[in-house]
């Protein structure tokens, strides 16, 4: 698969503070990547470095196998970082014209992309009159202008109201479904879980995990159980070969699996042992639980 961006041993220091520590990962074409991390974990700094606005301290990054200079590469990239930055005194249309000039493309795409983000009717209004949600949508339109090889989004739903968040997510999902490579930095886990295929987890500038989302949620899951005769159930669970451990809390027994076992098969085994339960739910750990485990344990 074609490599779009390769980051190797990247480090950024602000005085004594190390914002990014020896970070390496690779972005391949066609995947949707999420960079996860709490606030201040170095997500924006990493993106800033690859986007030519923050200077690296050491390490290296290469766009498109290093065949072209960074600013030429950026013409094939669409990126929005934190807040949408446009000229407040110019209309949406004029602002996009300027982006076209910088990227060296003609104006024909402007109307099409404004349509995608639903700003056609307001395209001649000044940017300063836009709501935050509209500004963010305009930023996405601007990032899409050149039909980019990769779309980089840094906290795209930050500060938006629920409708705004929903609109932006719908747009991102739509773009992802068309096969565009996306790199999405966020601290909102459900956001990443919903759209991303791959994930890089950062904490204090260090990489904790990088790989497929479904591999990160690798455990076999767990059962939540309730039973009148708790003692017998617990005894059964203890002897069961597929159960790793059990936790009892507020009358709810959680049994963690270490081997695949379906809920119906498990229920059958219980009945055969003469145990009748009143509550059985099989769940997998969410990305959020995995993420919290990863970031807390270190």
């Amino acid at each position: 698969m074609e490599t779009i961006l390769q980051i190797s041993n990247l480090t950024k220091k602000y005085g004594n503070l190390t914002a990014v520590k020896n970070l390496s990962f690779t972005i391949k074409k066609g995947n949707v990547y999420g960079i996860l991390g709490p606030n201040g974990s170095g997500k924006s700094t990493t993106l800033g470095i690859t986007l030519n606005v923050v200077n690296k301290t050491s390490g290296d990054f290469k766009w498109f196998d290093g065949t072209i200079s960074t600013h030429e590469a950026l013409k094939k990239v669409g990126a929005i970082i934190e807040r949408p930055n446009f000229y407040p005194y110019m209309s949406a249309y004029k602002n996009l014209q300027l982006v076209c000039k910088i990227k060296g493309i003609d104006y024909s795409k402007i109307d099409e992309k404004l349509e995608v983000v639903g700003l056609t009717e307001r395209k001649h209004s000044k940017f300063s009159t836009y709501s935050l949600g509209m500004k963010q949508r305009l930023a996405i339109a601007s990032a899409l202008l050149n039909d980019p090889e990769i779309l980089i989004l840094d906290e795209p739903t930050n500060g938006l109201d629920p409708q705004g968040i929903h609109q932006i997510r719908a747009i991102i999902q739509q773009i992802a479904s068309q096969g565009t490579t996306i790199l999405l930095a966020s601290h909102l886990l459900d956001e990443v879980e919903k759209v991303c295929t791959h994930v890089v987890v950062l904490r204090k500038g260090e990489k904790l995990y990088s790989g497929r989302v479904d591999e990160m949620i690798s455990s076999e899951g767990f059962f939540e159980l309730k039973c009148e005769d708790e003692a017998r159930l617990l005894q059964f669970l203890e002897q069961h070969p597929a159960i790793e451990k059990t936790i009892e809390k507020d009358g709810l027994i959680t049994a963690f699996l270490n081997a695949p076992l379906s809920a119906s098969e498990f229920n059958k085994q219980l009945v055969e042992s003469g145990i009748y339960i009143s509550h059985l739910v099989m769940r997998k750990e969410s990305l959020e639980e995995q993420f919290l485990q990863l970031t807390d344990n270190n």
Binding site: H71, L74, I81, I102
Partner: peptide
């Protein structure tokens, strides 16, 4: 306006 940042991200070199 932070547009200098956006200009660079859009592909203008420094």
């Amino acid at each position: 306006n932070k547009t200098i940042k956006q200009n660079l991200i859009d592909g203008l070199s420094k």
